[in-house]
């Protein structure tokens, strides 16, 4: 795996604006639900697949439905990682400082989703 800064210039500004709008929209939705129905109900929307929905429709338009399907397949591993993220936060947030709990939860998400992705990809070959 590598990081290339030059790749950031590739997507048009409109794509970044759409992503920001979807992120802000879902977060606002989760916030409103939390205010109206309590934090547990609001928490459900922290794993609402809106970003994937936005990405799938953008990718399908630019690269076809087949590639969009590939992204959804990849997102399955990310979603499994999200379960790990939420479990780690629930287990640690009352006993650890918030920053540590969220850092470990994010690392758990990354490790779990990338490990599952690598394992399934290897098994398919």
């Amino acid at each position: 795996m590598r990081l290339r800064l030059s790749e950031l210039r590739r997507p048009p500004m409109r794509d970044w604006a759409v992503r920001f709008a979807f992120g802000a929209g879902v977060s606002a939705l989760a916030g409103v639900v939390s205010v109206l129905a309590g934090p547990r109900a609001g928490g459900i929307f922290l794993a609402f697949p809106a970003i994937l929905l936005a990405s799938v429709t953008l990718v399908a338009k630019e690269e076809g439905v087949r590639q969009a399907g590939q992204d959804v397949r990849g997102a399955t591993f990310g979603a499994l990682g999200l379960i790990g993220f939420a479990v780690v936060v629930a287990l640690t947030v009352t006993i650890w400082p918030l920053w540590l709990s969220l850092t470990v939860a994010t690392l758990t998400w990354a490790a779990l989703s990338l490990a599952l992705y690598a394992t399934v990809t290897r098994l398919r070959r």
Binding site: R40, G42, G43, I44, L46, A47, A86, V89
Partner: peptide
């Protein structure tokens, strides 16, 4: 935060 994380488990 704890309640939100519990809700998030279901969402995930």
């Amino acid at each position: 935060v704890l309640a939100s994380a519990r809700g998030m488990q279901i969402g995930a």
